[in-house]
Design a binder for these strands. Structure first.
Lengths: 342, 342
DNA sequence: AATCAATTCCAAACCGCTTTGGATTAGGGA
DNA sequence: TCCCTAATCCAAAGCGGTTTGGAATTGATT
């Protein structure tokens, strides 16, 4: 059932039917109701392909997922962010397309998305230091919102981010207040923007209490269980081991915990741990009471809001870039305690 | 730059240009090369919206992600499956759209996808016992491939699945061979098809050795860390505790491990653990040597293959349903050992 | 009664591509 | 030389909607 059929069926022109369904004022209310009823009765759904061609809008937003040919790791935060963003899109009648591309073809992927008219806008994931995608998307002329920020970028752009610096500063201060002086940082890869900001927060907190950051206590790598385990083992095995860990990810923390287990150390008693908790739905920080003390910020909510921002940008072109900084909560769990008197 | 411009630019008709670019035989090779060169030079990309309308094909496949309004958990396997499927799609010039919908609107989502012509085919995730989506999609007339199977379904349909029954049967036998008699099963929700099959494999292995399955050792619920922890605590706290655990998910196993830690039990020595390992990229079972003994099957590879199957189904309609059963490997890690003599 | 504006509807153009059904030209065989 | 086929190319008709620019009708105003 298409528009033309419906129209002849009603004894009306396609024009009128289209207008009736789309709420234009130049159609009699009585007629409109007739049309609406007929549309429902015949289960008429306008063909998206035709709408898109006619209006020139794709009614679609794109998410590009670069797959590294080497260590092909999917961002664990991705699924929940997508779920949040997806909610927003469907509520607004937008589709979401995911482009999975080898990471060396990412730029071309954006260009194609634009020139083929597949999407109206883009969400940029996992921004890095001096991320080239921002300049690229400006050049290409596709509205976009970055989930995170890209230190070093000159041009203004729209972003939504968690206040990573502040979160890790507060977490570090919390540990300092508990008496810890040897605080380790198990961070993500340092070309990732969030990792840089978290380190900054950590270092700031230490130096403002006249503690020199110890490079031996600062680790940054992919946030996997294995890397977390190794880093923790190494740090705990050295002469002057840390009494507390600040860990950028729940998953790395699993590894840290395993290291503690192997050494017979109990979190919260022998060693303190604070993690950053993205509230991933499949890896909750405890069911009712938090297991880990954590800086917490829902990545799904970030997805919802980033999508809202993007749709707004698409609806109102020429608008100046929008930014939104979310504050993480510091929640107290069972993984932190005063420095053991030894 | 669109087709018409390119054509006038070349002094040709749009017809010829279209045919030249799409490899039709009724165009002179010399002309074709001229056209190709001009297309590249002007960076011409055909508008997908127009192609879709003209050809009637969406060049898109859909994945519907139902979000439960209650326990809104995103399938942890989802991201990697999508990554795998996405690779296949981009290689074939297909787009992937994700529809995030409240779970009570899932049926309508499929209907819309069809009647609005948004997609050419669908991947069905996480099938259940007597899953109604299969009959629905047959009725709607949209090609689809199920990732998993749906016990109880009469009509034939295309699916790709891991041999869950066999995997868990072998794993159970392995534990039996090590001398274990009290083997616990920490399973997923029992309305999920895979969970049913895994239980069947487990029960079969036990009964064929004349061991009656003990309901007190069989747990099934959402596969979260918390539930795994609770189940393990409860089982280990009872009079006749298990000496081995068979766990349906890496994530549940994290909880089981935490329970063991709290009781001072060491995996592989005091208690054995076998998990099912989907080879999630962000939760590897050890970096080089496996931590857990596991039944292993890459969900990303499943995504790749399921997508191939679907594209094949789309390209050759009227084809009988295709099925593919992947065998899981049983890999030996450090989490299993003989029953402690005690 | 005549005029004018508002209301209501429609025909046709358009979005950018594909595809059908020729038309034209060149080459080969009788 | 004439006819037929093959090789090239093109005009025009879709695909299924939206949107522009009227046309017809109605009602109010003078």
């Amino acid at each position: 059932m298409n528009l033309r059929e419906l129209a002849t069926n009603l004894g009306l022109s396609p024009t009128t039917v289209s207008r009736a369904l789309n709420g234009y004022p130049e159609v009699n209310e009585v007629t409109r109701e007739r049309v609406m009823a007929a549309a429902k009765r015949h289960n008429y759904q306008p063909n998206t392909r035709a709408i898109r061609l006619a209006t020139g809008r794709a009614m679609t937003v794109g998410h590009v997922i670069p797959i590294a040919t080497k260590h092909e790791i999917v961002n664990p935060v991705f699924a929940d962010f997508i779920a949040g963003a997806g909610e927003t899109y469907s509520r607004h009648g937008y589709d979401m397309v995911l482009s999975v591309v080898p990471d060396d073809q990412e730029a071309q992927a954006y260009r194609d998305l634009k020139s083929r008219g597949t999407v109206d806008g883009i969400i940029v994931h996992a921004p890095r230091l001096d991320d080239p995608r921002i300049a690229l998307l400006h050049e290409v002329g596709l509205p976009f919102v970055v989930h995170g920020r890209a230190t070093g970028t000159r041009q203004p752009y729209s972003w939504l981010d968690v206040n990573n610096r502040r979160a890790f500063q507060r977490a570090t201060e919390f540990l300092l207040d508990l008496g810890h002086r040897r605080i380790a940082l198990i961070n993500g890869l340092e070309y990732m923007d969030f990792a840089i900001r978290r380190r900054t927060g950590y270092v700031d907190a230490l130096t403002s209490r006249d503690i020199a950051p110890d490079p031996a206590l600062m680790f940054s790598d992919e946030m996997t269980e294995g890397r977390g385990f190794r880093a923790a083992c190494q740090m705990l095995g050295q002469g002057n081991p840390p009494t507390a860990f600040l860990v950028s990810s729940m998953i790395s923390a699993l590894g840290v915990r395993r290291a503690l287990d192997e050494l017979g150390l109990k979190p919260g008693r022998d060693v303190s741990i604070i993690i950053h908790d993205d509230e991933l739905s499949y890896l909750r920080n405890g069911e009712d009471v938090p297991i880990y003390t954590a800086t917490r910020s829902s990545v799904r909510e970030a997805g919802r809001q980033a999508a809202e921002m993007l749709l707004d940008l698409i609806a109102n072109p020429g608008q100046p870039p929008q930014t939104r900084l979310l504050e993480a909560e510091l929640i107290i769990g069972q993984s932190t305690g005063p420095t053991p008197s030894k």
